[in-house]
Structure formats: structure tokens, C-alpha cells
């Protein structure tokens, strides 16, 4: 347990850096590998901008909570058989709780500066992220059906025969929608975006901004690890050792999520809300029914 936690904490910084590199690919500004580090260092040397009458405590804590949720979410992912940081029999529910709390944290981040654009971003995000979370829970329940357990370890073991990606082809794409919402990017980046001048982080500067971006990258890592575990068989794989497989799959999902974030355009929020409830949610029902029929003996 402690060993698994140490591995996670060791693996997280390079993975966060990899997430930043993925974000930089295709922006045409060069310095792929060193760019994120340099920009991060420059941010750390700038001051934090205060605002008029902010909620100081929550403003200071929001990036920390976001990072904490990423870490806790990551901690339910087994690195190898039996090697998991928090070995909870209801790991999937804990991951769901992390998703739900992320909405709260992003809202707090936008609320605390007492400024218009962060506030707009925070409220817009809540509208979209709440139903998006619902999607992911249905999809994860679909992953738990063949395992007959809510433990993430059992979900992996149930994929020895066939990956959940094959059992429920709709699962990963729907789960990715949630990933985009959790990591505030692309079509689900309702907390930020150019039409809000950065949204919840429009008033942040210096280390506060750096901490928020770091937590966002850590959340991408956590989400990708979870997606790789729930749908791509986690540590399962031939020849290579388990943790390495998990690492490779995590990197693949990270890349796919970043690409999806770039590919799809962001809709006006009311349109996205209808899409989520009327199209994507029924799709997740259908997905669940599909798995249900498949796994019945």
C-alpha cells in the first residue's frame, strides 16, 4: 500500500510533464520538451494578483483541492495485481466521489476571486459538469457488471478474457466526455475558454495559476489511468510487466483525450446541456443495457 503510493508519487511528476507536452504538440511554438518547464518556472517567479475582497482561503485552497482529488482518484488504480494505494472495496464509488467534488472545486475556484469572468465560468461549468458526471457513472457501472464488484482491482481482473472496450464500445468515448470536463479542456471546457478570457483562471496569476494548471494536468493523468484501467485492461498485457502496460495505456488515453479536446468545437452551453441529457445520457443507458445482455450467462 505504501509502496504503491510511493510509486504513484514518483510517476506523477513525469506524467504531468508529459501531459503538458501533449498540450503543446501542434501549437507550432517549438520547445516541446523544455517549453512547459520554462513557462512553469517563469510563472512561479511572478506574484499572485490579489482581487478586490476575494474569498482568500478558498482561493488559496482551490488548486490544492483539485490536485488532491486527482491524487485520490489516481490512488484507486491498481498498478499490478494487489499493488494499489487505497485498496477500497468500493474504489469505483470513490472515483465517482472525486468527480463530484471536482465540480465543487472548480466552482470554488471561479467563485473565490469575486470577479465577473471567473464567476461566469464557474456557473457555466456546473451546468455542464453535473450531467456529464452522470454519464461517467453509468459507464463505470457498465464496467463493474462483469466484475460483480465495485473494486477497481476486480474490474481489471474481469478483463482477462476480453477488454471492456470490446464489451462496451460506447463506454470509452462516453467516459472521455467526462475526462474532457474534469480536465477543463476542449468541447467541455466550460470553466474557461477564449470567450471568457480564461474563465475561472482569468484573475489568477503567477504561482496560483501554475498550481491550477499543474492540478489540471494531474487530473488528466488520473482520468487517463482510470480510463485505461476500466476499459483497456489496466495492467494486463503480454510480455511487459504490468505497471509498464498501465503506463503505456495511460499515455495513450492522455494523447487521445488531448486530441479529442482539440478536435471538437465548444457549443453554447444550453445546446450542450440538451445534448448531454437527450442524446448522450440515453446512449449511456443503451451502453449499459448492451453490457447487461452480454454478460448474462
Amino acid at each position: 500500500m505504501i509502496a504503491a503510493t510511493l510509486y504513484l508519487l514518483l510517476a506523477l511528476p513525469p506524467l504531468v510533464w508529459a501531459a503538458a507536452v501533449f498540450d503543446r504538440i501542434g501549437t507550432g511554438r517549438g520547445a516541446l520538451l523544455a517549453g512547459p518547464l520554462r513557462n512553469g518556472a517563469a510563472l512561479l517567479l511572478r506574484p499572485v494578483a490579489p482581487t478586490e475582497a476575494p474569498d482568500r482561503l478558498n482561493r488559496l485552497l482551490a488548486p490544492g483541492w483539485y490536485l488532491a482529488l486527482a491524487l485520490v482518484g489516481l490512488s484507486v488504480v491498481p498498478l499490478a495485481p494487489g499493488l494499489v494505494a487505497s485498496d477500497l472495496s468500493t474504489g469505483l464509488v470513490l472515483w465517482g466521489a472525486c468527480e463530484a467534488l471536482t465540480v465543487v472545486v472548480v466552482f470554488l475556484h471561479g467563485w473565490s476571486p469575486n470577479a465577473p469572468f471567473p464567476l461566469l465560468g464557474a456557473y457555466r461549468y456546473v451546468a455542464i459538469a453535473l450531467p456529464a458526471m452522470l454519464l461517467s457513472m453509468f459507464v463505470l457501472i457498465g464496467a463493474a457488471l462483469p466484475a460483480q464488484s465495485l473494486s477497481v482491482g476486480a474490474v481489471v481482473e474481469a478483463q482477462r478474457e476480453v477488454w471492456n472496450l470490446v464489451r462496451q464500445p460506447l463506454g470509452l468515448p462516453l467516459f472521455m466526455a467526462l475526462g474532457l470536463a474534469l480536465t477543463l479542456r476542449g468541447p467541455f471546457d466550460y470553466a474557461g475558454g477564449a470567450e471568457l478570457a480564461g474563465g475561472t483562471s482569468a484573475e489568477e496569476s503567477g504561482p496560483a495559476l501554475a498550481a491550477w494548471r499543474l492540478a489540471r494536468a494531474a487530473m488528466l493523468v488520473a482520468f487517463s489511468a482510470m480510463a485505461a484501467t476500466a476499459f483497456l485492461g489496466g495492467y494486463l498485457g503480454p510480455v511487459l510487466p504490468g505497471p509498464l502496460w498501465l503506463l503505456l495505456k495511460t499515455l495513450a488515453v492522455m494523447a487521445a483525450t488531448v486530441a479529442a479536446g482539440r478536435f471538437f468545437a465548444r457549443m453554447p452551453p444550453a445546446r450542450m446541456l440538451t445534448l448531454l441529457w437527450v442524446v448522450l445520457l440515453p446512449l449511456s443507458f443503451a451502453n449499459l443495457a448492451l453490457v447487461g445482455i452480454e454478460v448474462l450467462p
Binding site: L60, G64, W65, L67, A68, A85, P207
Partner: peptide, 16 residues
């Protein structure tokens, strides 16, 4: 992990 993360992010924001 929660304590660790919150302490880390707090410390980071004290750097500037």
C-alpha cells in the same frame, strides 16, 4: 494524499 496535495499547492503559492 489530500493533506499532501493541499500542503504542496499551498507551498507553491507562497513561492512568488
Amino acid at each position: 494524499l489530500v493533506l499532501l496535495a493541499v500542503a504542496f499547492a499551498w507551498g507553491l503559492q507562497r513561492l512568488g
